[in-house]
């Protein structure tokens, strides 16, 4: 009887450990194992191509006013830090109209790769992104180190990039 109880406790602990491992693995998932990015001009960017850079992956949509409101500052941040090793990838959500995405990217002269997530593989790989904007930071080794739901705090982002990227690095 006592052994049965012990078995149940150990089994429960094992299940808990499995759940914890799964949860942790979702956030800590290597960006390398994610789907490749395909840009609106057909360029393919494999996660491994981004090694050595700090990468900001921003899920957005042209129908999301909040996303568009933060774009100008995202552009400015990219222009400032890209030479030092920042990459920004803007992933348009699967439900977005590709034509609208292309038009917006052209009109705003988005300087970073703009990706169409047709089929939703990226949204799934990044832990079921449902709402926008959602922003992930990926470290130079390819690990996702943060997820932000909602508007980016650009002051904090700049402070982070200043502290993390080498000064004056060539692009």
């Amino acid at each position: 009887m006592r052994i049965n109880k012990a078995v149940r406790v150990v089994a429960a602990l094992a299940v808990l450990a499995a759940v914890a491992a799964g949860t942790y693995a979702v956030f800590q998932k290597s960006a390398d194992s994610a789907a490749a990015f395909t840009t609106i001009d057909g360029r393919r960017i494999a996660p491994s191509d981004l090694r050595g850079k700090i990468v900001l992956v921003n899920f957005w949509a042209t129908t999301c006013g909040i996303c568009l409101a933060e774009m100008p500052e995202l552009i400015a941040t990219y222009r400032q830090y890209q030479p030092r090793g920042l990459e920004v990838i803007a992933v348009a959500m699967p439900y977005d109209d590709p034509q609208q995405v292309r038009q917006y990217a052209a009109k705003q002269s988005l300087p970073f790769p703009v990706v169409l997530d047709q089929g939703g593989a990226l949204a799934r790989d990044y832990g079921q992104v449902r709402v926008t904007p959602v922003t992930f930071m990926i470290d130079p080794s390819g690990q996702r180190i943060s997820k932000t739901v909602g508007i980016i705090n650009f002051a904090k982002l700049r402070a982070f990039l200043d502290a993390s990227l080498p000064v004056g690095r060539a692009s």
């Binding site: 508007i151 982002l157 982070f160």
Partner: peptide, 9 residues
């Protein structure tokens, strides 16, 4: 450093 980088939601 990234902890609390963005607004926490």
């Amino acid at each position: 450093r990234v902890a609390g980088l963005f607004s926490s939601k």
